[in-house]
Each structure stands twice: as C-alpha cells, then as structure tokens.
Design a protein around this nucleic acid. Structure first.
Lengths: 231, 231
DNA sequence: AATTAAATTTAGACAAAGCTAAAAATAGAT
DNA sequence: ATCTATTTTTAGCTTTGTCTAAATTTAATT
C-alpha cells in the first residue's frame, strides 16, 4: 500500500462509529492529553466498557488515540484534529437547521448527529459560507475553524456571577431537550441581558432582572447558563 | 412487539444498505411489478449476485419486495413507497446543492448519495420548502411528491425528434460526470431551445440550432438528451 | 500488607453485509 | 428431449461493531 493510501485511510475511511468515539473522547476532555477511562466513554455513549476497549485498540492502531491498558485513552494530535472537524460539522449543521430551516434549538441535535458524518469537504465549507462563517452554534458553543482552532469563550456560569453584575446570556451547559424547552417557555434566549439582583442563601436561587422583567430562577437553572460579563 | 413497533421497524429501522437496494430495484424498473434479476441488481450495485440473494430474502421478510427464487424481485407497494421517498430525498438534495451551494451538476450525485439516507421527515420537508417545491432535479429528473406520486415527463430523446421540430432541453439520460462535463463545455444546458436542422444518415449525427448558434452533435450525445416538444 | 471492591480487559459469541467456491436450477441449442 | 451454458442459490468464511461472562488488574480499606 502506497503512502497516499495511508493518507486516504486516515482521512476518508473513518467509520461513523470511529468518528463518534473520537467526538465523545474530545467532549470528555481527552483533547488536553488527559486520559479518559473506558467506563466514562461507555457511560456517555450508552455502550459497554468492553466495546470501548475494542475501539480504543483500533483507534490506537490508527494513531488517533494514545491508549494505555487499564489507564484510558487520550487523543493524539491527529485524533484531536479529526474530532474537531466532526464537531465543526455538527455545529455548522445546527446553525443551518436553525437559521435556514426554522428548526428550534431543541430539535437540531438529533439531525446534526447524522449530518456530521457526511463526507464532503466542499459541502461543509459551502454551508459555512452560506451561513456567513458563524462563530457559535445555537446553544452558544463555539464552532472550530477549518484549521482546527477552537475559540474558547470567556464566560462564566450565571450561578457564579456576583450580585449586581450584568451579563449577556451566551450559551447553555446542559443542552438537553427538556432544559431547552424550559428556557423557551420562560423566554430565556441567547443574547438576553441579565442582571443578578439577589442571591438566596437557603437554596442558592437567584432573583434576576432580564430584559426589564424581574424573575426568580433556581440554582439548577443558573448553573447551566453561561453569561458573558460586559464590563 | 406492539403494532406500533412493527410500524417503527419498517419506517425508521431501515439500514443504508437496504435503502440502496430498494432504490436500485426501482431504477431497474422493479416498481412496475416487473421482476428484476439478482444479476442485474448486482451489476448495477457493483456487488456479487450472492449478496443480492441474501438481501432479497431479507427485504422479502420485511415485506418490501416480492421475491421468487430463481426469478428475481419486484417492489411491493410498501417497498415502492420507501424507494420513492429515498429518490425524493436524493433529488431534493441535488437541487439544494446546486441552487443554494453553487455545486455544479456533475458534483452533486456523490454527496446526495450520502444525504439521501438522513432520517428526518422534517428536514426533507423544510428543504423542499426552502427550494420552493421544485419539480425536477438538476439533471431534469422528476422529484416524487411527499405522498409518493411520480410525475413522468412527456419528453423524448433528441435523437428521436423529427427534422425541423423544435424542443426545449429538459433532462439527461446519462448523468455520468464525463457526459455532464462535456455538456457544460459545449454550453448545452437544461432550458435551452433546440431545433433539429438535419440528420446525417451515415453516422446518425444531427445538425442543430441551439439558442441561435448552429452546431453538429453525435448520435451518442443526442440519444442521451431529453427534449420537450413545445407545440 | 492483605483483602475486597471496582474497573478493565479478554475470550467467545452474534448480527449485518459482504465475499468465494461449489451446488442447483433455468434456459437455449441441437 | 437432452445436454450444455448461464444464472442463481447455498454453504461457509470475513470484517465491523457489538454483547456477556469470566478473568485480571487497579484502588481502596482495613
């Protein structure tokens, strides 16, 4: 097999399953040369640890993860690059679904899970262009650039904001359907300006002012909303 | 297993491979209760007849094809419906790629082959809407409606047109990349008005007038271009 | 330091989808 | 009507990705 085919094997002959493993490992922090346990991966992917072990070996053979028996896996440079390209596709498709097809932000994940595996560099780039090169997806998560740069946000959780400080809602930590539906129902959307008026010691709930209106939100909600301080 | 799950099994638990078989059988004419041989399917799909036999049994078990040993397969009503829904998706995605993402008509097939398997009814419908409910794909092939109606075109091959008759170019029979590139290079596009000036008995080539300019085209080309008579 | 509990890996099995080679059925030609 | 040649199917094997159950390693506790 020629060098060129080795290249092809790595970049184009990646199975859906392999891609999903890399993505999960990245989301669990395996991109920062931290070892992720097979158990953690199995739990996240709703599969069995033994299956993860099998895949860990395969990805290790392909040079996409570093795997040490009984220790766990972390992404190699190559593996991280691949994971980021999948995450990039996922988030771009999410923006597309919301912006161009009027999907709501709780509907996009499932479909994007499928679309992220479409293999066509031109397609992703054109979608990116069509959307005018967005920086964040509908949940406020940053979209990696084409060359794998990952723009970290300078934000904090609403629950960590000090009293009287003002911020703009920029993302969610929990992007599960129930949580997103809850936010919709309560008119909490990305871009809203929020001021923390008061904290309740007893249950850590917050009294906030959002776009003029005053409301009380629980600690559970506040600890799943990212805000950017605008000072 | 409840009735509802039987429903789910048929409509949602269709594998990519099964979908490709149904699509191929339809394209070979298996939608008109005509029996398609395993050999024909194998050749079309670049696989082996024995593999086709295996799949024929499986699809038959699922009630999607009628299969008689040594005879061949044809689509059931259910199978035809499924095949049409895949073809619908394929062609809508092709339009999307050309209209919204500036793909050329020879680039779309490969990507649409992947996109056609995305499972989300809402996605297809929204794409359909975004494109303003197109009737034909970029190669002039009709797009089946949501309820599986298949709009046949009243067209003939350019090679079958009588001398002096005028028509509009509406589709291609051969949609291979080389042929499409050839058409582009010679400025032959869908929508062009074509008049047959003359036929050469010797090689069946045609002298035509297209959008003002006169040119000669071979029988091979003429027998792969669909035109609609506008009289 | 020994023992136990938990996590991880191995071994062996299975389903999907494909292949090869051999067997069986059909069809065409005499 | 029989005999080939072709087509189609069967049987058995392969790979991918999964699983269960058993074995092994690590970690935690006493």
């Amino acid at each position: 097999m020629s060098n060129k085919n080795v290249f092809l094997k790595k970049y184009f002959l990646m199975t859906r399953s392999e891609e999903n493993y890399l993505k999960t490992i990245f989301h669990l922090g395996g991109g920062d040369s931290k070892s992720i346990t097979t158990n953690a991966i199995a739990e996240q992917m709703e599969t069995k640890p033994s299956s993860v072990t099998d895949m860990a070996k395969k990805l290790s053979d392909k040079g996409l993860v570093d795997y040490v028996r009984y220790q766990g896996v972390s992404l190699t440079t190559e593996g991280k690059k691949t994971a980021l390209s999948i995450i990039r596709k996922h988030r771009l498709w999410e923006v597309f679904l919301v912006e161009k097809l009027d999907f709501s932000w709780d509907e996009v994940h499932e479909v994007a899970e499928q679309l992220e595996h479409i293999k066509s560099e031109k397609l992703v780039d054109k979608i990116d262009e069509l959307l005018n090169f967005p920086k964040y997806d509908p949940h406020g998560d940053p979209i990696p650039t084409k060359d794998g740069k990952f723009q970290e946000r300078d934000e904090k959780l609403l629950s960590e904001m000090s009293i009287k400080s003002i911020g703009i809602c920029v993302g969610v930590k929990d992007s599960s359907v129930p949580f997103l539906k809850f936010l919709d129902k309560n008119n909490i959307a990305l871009g809203n300006t929020i001021q923390v008026l008061d904290k309740e010691d007893f249950d850590n709930s917050l009294r906030i002012q959002m776009d003029g209106k005053e409301m009380r939100i629980s600690h559970q909600i506040a600890s799943n909303l990212y805000v950017k301080k605008n000072d």
